[in-house]
Design a protein around this nucleic acid. Structure first.
Length: 539
DNA sequence: CTAGGGTTAG
């Protein structure tokens, strides 16, 4: 049963064996005991993934009187949490007569898996003993639930408590760095790992590749990738996605072809990266080819995100009608995101009729989708349909508070400085605005004129009053210019998509001040250098 | 026999 329970594809055989064991009335010494249940429970989780079957085994455990065993109890906690039954896990935990550090850790990680980080933290604080796994469980919980600052914070505390991290800890911390764009911290961890002879296993390698890529340092990501002792589909996929995000489509495709030669089978995520690369580089035919090969060569059924990539690919290249036809022919029901991709390209190409159609489909699926409403209000204004305009306005009224404010942040000497649009709260605020005034003069000399339709691009995301102000990325850049040596690279992360006006002024700023600027927005990277951007003004 | 890790579309 144990062998079956830990062999992928054979888990359910463990369940059959158990049934067989019960059905044969053999002598009592050979009935299931506390050594049986951990394997059985694990098999049950991977076969069904449901609370109900766990409860059935649970009641048999109670009947047989094996419930007080610490291994059985701990496995029950783990099984319930993996199936989303955190309340049942908590009950088991409370009733366990004997608990050890593993039981406590199971609870911390179970709560984390169910997204209950406040309770997980409380449990962690109350633990009588903590080991490396306790710390790592809390860290990975924060990382996976998107509490990135907390992740780094607990990692610091762990160091302060004198607990040395291992590869597993590093992976979680690196993923937080990746999603924060915290390059300096990520680099520090990389060098710490080198100094401490950490294993460059597949997990660590993938996490490093992802971290460097998401910080815009795709060259460093490639170094890690090329020096890895062995690779698998995840490392390759991470590298492909990383290259794609950074606008290096040809290299992304080359990695894909190399992995085929190495006999590594792609999975669906690999194709997300490949299609994304084709889309960003305008490689329409290649994209169509790879999309077709997914099913034909690899028997991978395209999912919604692949269709989304294809809509983007076709639309970005200006084939709006093809994009629409593509959606119509989809064998699965398009979701908000697929229609959203069509809407986005209609917006870039100022295609109001099809865009309004897409917006209506979105509103059918998501009643108050702000992007669709903003597009419609704009489209109605264009055709002077004031009734339609009024209708949209009324719907939008209720939305105001729901929209995420635009913010940008910059990592300076391992401290993250964050700015909102029009923000004046930073201690250096005066100097920042003075810098922007100075830049405005220089921009004008370069022939820059603010673009009229600016509002349209960001209106869905940033509050009306805010876009009259200065967008957050400009504040972050000005702050970076003031506080870093001349000629050094500036890296900014923004939570939304960059607007057209900011994009063209940042291009010029990179030329005027002679700095490379890397801006990671919610979609992709912009590497500004000498007045041009790696996205070729298409994003 | 029990706990912690990487890649995912607009």
């Amino acid at each position: 049963m144990q062998a079956y329970s830990e062999t992928p594809g054979f888990e359910s055989n463990a369940l059959s064996l158990y049934t067989l064991q019960l059905s044969i009335d053999i002598d009592p010494t050979r009935r299931p005991n506390c050594f049986t249940f951990p394997s059985l429970l694990k098999a049950c989780v991977s076969t069904f993934g449901l609370v109900r079957p766990i409860q059935e085994i649970h009641s048999q455990i109670t009947k047989l009187g094996t419930y007080s065993d610490v291994y059985v109890g701990t496995t029950l906690i783990d099984s319930y949490s993996k199936c989303g039954g955190i309340q049942f896990a908590q009950n088991v935990f409370e009733e366990m007569p004997v608990k050890n550090v593993v039981s406590w850790n199971s609870m911390v990680s179970g709560l984390a898996k169910c997204g209950e980080m406040d309770s997980a933290k409380k449990m962690f604080d109350e633990m009588p003993d903590k080991n490396l796994v306790s710390w790592t469980s809390l860290i990975s919980g924060y990382a996976q639930n998107g509490y990135l600052v907390e992740t780094l914070d607990v990692f610091d505390k762990m160091g302060a408590a004198g607990v040395k991290p291992n590869e597993i800890t590093m992976v979680s911390v690196l993923s937080a760095c990746a999603n924060l764009g915290a390059l300096e911290i990520g680099r520090k961890i990389h060098s710490f790992m080198k100094d401490n002879d950490c294993d460059m296993d597949l997990y660590v390698g993938s996490a490093l590749i992802d971290m460097y890529s998401k910080c815009g340092m795709v060259g460093d990501a490639l170094d890690v990738f090329k020096n890895m002792p062995s690779k698998n589909v995840v490392t390759c996929s991470a590298m492909i996605v990383g290259l794609a995000l950074n606008g290096r489509a040809v290299e992304a495709i080359n990695i894909f072809e190399e992995m085929r030669v190495d006999g590594i089978m792609p999975v669906d995520i690999t194709f997300v990266g490949v299609l994304c690369a084709c889309s960003h580089a305008g490689l329409v035919e290649k994209g169509k080819f790879y999309f077709g090969s997914m099913t034909q060569e690899y028997s991978i059924v395209p999912k919604l995100h692949h269709y989304t990539c294809m809509v983007d690919l076709l639309g970005r290249a200006g084939h709006l009608d093809q994009a629409y036809q593509f959606i119509k022919k989809m064998p699965i029901k398009p979701d908000v995101v697929v229609w959203g991709a069509l809407l986005t390209i209609c917006r870039t190409h100022l295609e109001f009729k099809l865009g309004a159609y897409a917006a209506c489909r979105i509103l059918e699926l998501e009643h108050q989708h702000s992007g669709a409403l903003v597009f419609l209000s704009y489209a109605y204004a264009k055709v002077e349909d004031w009734d339609g305009m009024e209708w949209v306005r009324r719907k939008m009224g209720r939305l105001r508070t729901k929209r995420a404010p635009g913010k940008s942040w910059i990592d300076l000497n391992n401290v993250v400085h964050q700015f909102f649009a029009g923000d004046k709260s930073h201690p250096q605020s005066e100097r920042i605005y003075a810098k922007l005034d100075e830049l405005a003069v220089l921009l004008e000399l370069e022939g820059y004129t603010p673009s009229v339709d600016t509002a349209f691009c960001e209106v869905e995301e940033e509050e009306k009053e805010q876009y009259l102000n200065i967008h957050s990325e400009k504040l972050a850049i000005a702050f970076g210019l003031i506080n870093t040596p001349e000629g050094t690279l500036i890296r900014i992360v923004k939570n939304l998509r960059v607007c057209d006006d900011c994009h063209s002024s940042i291009k010029l700023i990179s030329k005027i001040v002679g700095r490379d600027i890397i801006l990671r927005d919610s979609n992709r990277f912009h590497h500004f250098s000498g007045g041009i951007c790696s996205c070729h003004d298409y994003w």
